[in-house]
Amino acid sequence: MVTKNFIVDLNKPLVSQVGHLGEAYEEWVHQPIVSKEGPRLFENDILEFFTRTVWWAIPIIWLPVVCWFVSKDVEMGVPSTQIAASLVGGIFFWTLLEYCFHRFLFHIKTNGYWGNTLHYLLHGCHHKHPMDGLRLVFPPAGATCIVVPLWYLIKLTTPSSIAPTFFGGVLLGYIMYDCTHYYVHHGKPNKGVSSNLKRFHMNHHFRIHDKGFGITSSFWDIVFGTLPPKSGKESM
């Protein structure tokens, strides 16, 4: 049940509270708290443990999976040029998934108790505490729930000779995405591509959260017209 004029107590676990904000949730969650100390989400220690992930767990867990899928095409004798093309194609396809997930799922509008609660777990906690270093990458258990059905979808819709490596490319794109996401929050680039990516993403957090959905690039923002407007100061 949504409680009118509910005030969140930041000293208590947040997941059980945010649903009560109702229509005020959208404004509350986009007022960031800039601190490297993350909030407690659950009272239960086990649930709380699974909300925290160190960034280096992502390549350690998923790179061997990428290699295994690519090896399946190698074992089938698929030409190396075709393997390379499938891998690049999978990476490029991931950039579209990245954009779509971020724009249409992570930024869905909610105002009910369960909608607010689920959104907060999925992405809202990141916007409220954008510098929480243990909640910048997707927990492996949650990622598995997306990866498994995605593999079967790709297996059903692409030729068997390219499906494993194409899927490996999608996973590799995901690894690049999560590591890039961590870096643009905690890295300190001075110039070049990495500096531009950091400025672009910080702009999404601190100036205009309904634009600039790309993380690894702004390509799809250009294609779909969601680039943020020009400003003299693009980030904090």
Rank of each mutant, 00 (worst) to 15 (best):
I7A: 13
C67W: 13
K72P: 05
V137R: 06
F206G: 05
T165I: 07
Q31D: 14
S35T: 02
P32S: 05
T3Q: 13
F219N: 08
D178V: 03
G142D: 12
F166A: 03
N44D: 12
L150P: 00
V15Q: 13
K155I: 13
P228M: 04
C179F: 03
F106W: 04
S194P: 00
N111K: 11
K230R: 14
T81C: 14
P229D: 15
I215K: 03
W28I: 06
V74P: 10
L14G: 01
V18C: 13
N5H: 12
T81E: 15
K198T: 03
V29E: 00
K211W: 05
M76Y: 11
V65P: 06
G169S: 02
I58Y: 11
M76E: 07
R52W: 01
M1Q: 14
K233V: 15
L134A: 15
V34Q: 15
Y183E: 06
V137S: 07
A163D: 07
V193Q: 08
W55N: 06
L172V: 12
T117M: 02
L156W: 14
G187Y: 11
S16L: 00
F200W: 11
V223M: 00
T53R: 08
V88F: 09
G90H: 02
E75K: 08
L171S: 06
V54S: 08
Y99K: 01
L10W: 10
L21R: 08
T165W: 04
P64K: 08
D73V: 02
S235M: 14
F92W: 11
L197I: 13
Q17L: 05
G225I: 10
T216Y: 06
P79D: 01
K191N: 12
T180E: 11
I222Y: 14
G22Q: 09
L150H: 04
S195M: 12
V147M: 10
D221H: 04
T53D: 00
S235F: 12
V88I: 14
V78N: 09
L96H: 10
S217D: 05
P159I: 07
G124Y: 07
W114G: 05
A84V: 10
K191L: 06
G168D: 06
R199T: 12
W220S: 01
N196V: 13
V54W: 14
G90P: 02
S161M: 14
K12Y: 10
F224T: 05
P189A: 10
F42W: 09
W62T: 09
